[in-house]
Design a protein around this nucleic acid. Structure first.
Lengths: 203, 203, 203, 203
DNA sequence: AATGAATGAGGATTCATTCAT
DNA sequence: TATGAATGAATCCTCATTCAT
């Protein structure tokens, strides 16, 4: 489920596989050791292939990272959209979106790390902000509807949206780090905090 | 407001000044360009001094970064302690602590970036977690008292504490990024969300 | 005659060649100018290759040196073993071993220098001692047999063995330095001194 | 008992003391860690003085080393001369010289190391050779007399002299390293080997 | 005599990227 | 497609030496 193949090249089935394999492995290393601490050599050696392979599929290390980043952001968004599709009540949509965010974060802690890192390098910061903006806009839309329909007090949509984001990621991280791996329980705690925070009655 | 001089060395007044100067400059560059994108050469050139100066005051680039990190975490904590000292009501203490956190974050956005980055590199992650734990513990103490005295519903202290942290940092970042620089307004929004989130009546 | 390739890597024929070439060139420079006075840059420039080449074949300058050291010690030992193989008389074995040692030393004066240097750096001293111990043990075995069979007076094997070593290296060095390059003549003088020294009748 | 004070400077009593202190400390470090591994900073820090002190007494690290070297060689020579003064029999003189050499070496193992090192660096090699030549010449004089008076078979003086040197140093080193610290015993073994080696009857 | 600070050339090593095969 | 080899700029760090005080 990759984006625009970069070295604009038609890949065979086997090629697509290789490419995915590189992405997967690199993601794990980037998350575990950090982007800079992971060299292209580490990646190809870990995969047991020659160096040329990497550059056959990617223009550069930077481009690979960007691709991982975008994939991650798109994947999270899709997950949330899928979770809230067809639900009428804006509060429920928010709750479900938050839950989906938590579950995704629990399952993709590595990607979270990458986003955190990306934010700190001039080279990647723009990409992260772009993605974050999309997520915030989604949340704002729901919040707006909730305000319009009187389900929550009128307030600063953007502020509330970023609050949702903050609680979701930070609380999830903290609890996962502490060893709590039950996504459901974590989701309950996060959702509770969030709904209260925006002024809705927790379910 | 530096810590223990590192290459255990007695510094003259002039030396202390230099050292502080390096820390300040390096912090700015690290925050602006990223830790890896900022070379020791960049730092000393920017300061117009020889390369050896850096290593006269610091054992390594890594150690300098760690020092900045610890200074930042200690500074934030002190600010919060100062803000809540002598206040009896736990809810008010929480509110004041959150406010202080927001104000500090608004004034030290650069440091926030560094902490975010540090979390993503194996080398620094431990230090960040240690600092975060201290902050969380502080918040947990207040929350516990609030629960014990019936000011908020009994709940998962750790979860709530990390919620407070998450809202504070993420919401502040988002609003600052959007151009809102009035710390007071931001603090109001954040505090509101937080108090609601833990189940207290916003003031 | 290289040992275990170091950066555990399979080398092609061309690679093996390059590796040997580096070892050869570096040995010459180390011996001529000293280990510290020879920089990696000197080596690669002298070879007309890029700096990375060195690190493709060796983990570090130190490791390369160690490898040269071990190769040298092993080579000398093999030469002596070959020279004495199949000879029954222990005195003759000693004489032949000494001769072989002299000849080897005359032909590999550079390596002798490296060993001398290595002994003086904490980093390499252990490796030298290990090699020396092997050589001494070899000589001691022959001396023991000579004593057991009454060919030389009973004495302190270890002392005699180190005496053989000392005469061989120092006398050879001194004579070579003086310009006498005829290995045969030198070997005669050394062997004479050695056999007399251990109490055997010179042949 | 220093040589030509180098930064041609009149030293006060206290100054001479300082100077000797530096030489002593540096000698120990050079011998223990190696010349290159010991920085000027190590020396002054170890002594608890500022960097200027070093350059007040010595022009450079190199010059200090050279001075230590020469002191050592002169000291050894004097010791041997003192030991053999007034003795008529050339064989006895040789025996006593060798003994003195062994005793000195046992007591100054560190200096031996320095000489070994010096031989391997282009910068110092000449100085060592010069010293060695003096020692060899001394020995040759005695050997010549022994030959002239028929006490030992006529042979190659220079070769024999270097043999004496080699046995003395290498055997002593080997035995000391093995833990035998009784200079007398070691001297016996060395002298025995040496006298036999040159064709004299051991006493 | 002595100190702490500063200099900067030099050195080892890394690593993204390219290339011949 | 893939590999091993090669490149060389960039980086961190060391250290002998100098200097202002």
């Amino acid at each position: 489920m990759t984006t625009s193949a970069t070295p604009s090249r038609r890949l065979t089935a086997r090629g697509e596989e290789r490419r995915a394999q590189i992405i997967e492995f690199a993601t794990a290393r980037f998350a575990a050791d950090g982007y800079h601490a992971t060299s292209v050599a580490d990646i190809v050696n870990g995969l047991g292939v020659g160096k040329g392979v990497f550059y056959w599929y990617f223009d550069s290390k930077e481009q690979l990272f960007l691709e991982i980043l975008k994939d991650a952001q798109r994947d999270l968004r899709r997950t949330q959209q899928r979770a809230t599709a067809g639900v009428d009540d804006p509060i429920r949509r928010i709750a479900l979106g938050v839950r989906a965010g938590v579950v995704w974060t629990v399952g993709h802690g590595e990607l979270r790390r990458l986003v955190d890192f990306a934010r700190t390098e001039a080279t990647f910061a723009a990409a992260v902000r772009a993605g974050q903006r999309v997520l915030t806009r989604d949340a704002m839309a729901q919040l707006q509807e909730a305000m319009d329909t009187g389900r929550i007090p009128v307030g600063d949509g953007r502020a509330l949206a970023s609050g949702l984001l903050g609680v979701t990621t930070t609380m999830t991280d903290a609890l996962v780090e502490e060893g709590r791996v039950d996504a459901g329980t974590i989701a309950d705690l996060v959702t509770d905090f969030c709904l209260r925070g925006i002024g809705a009655d927790p379910v």
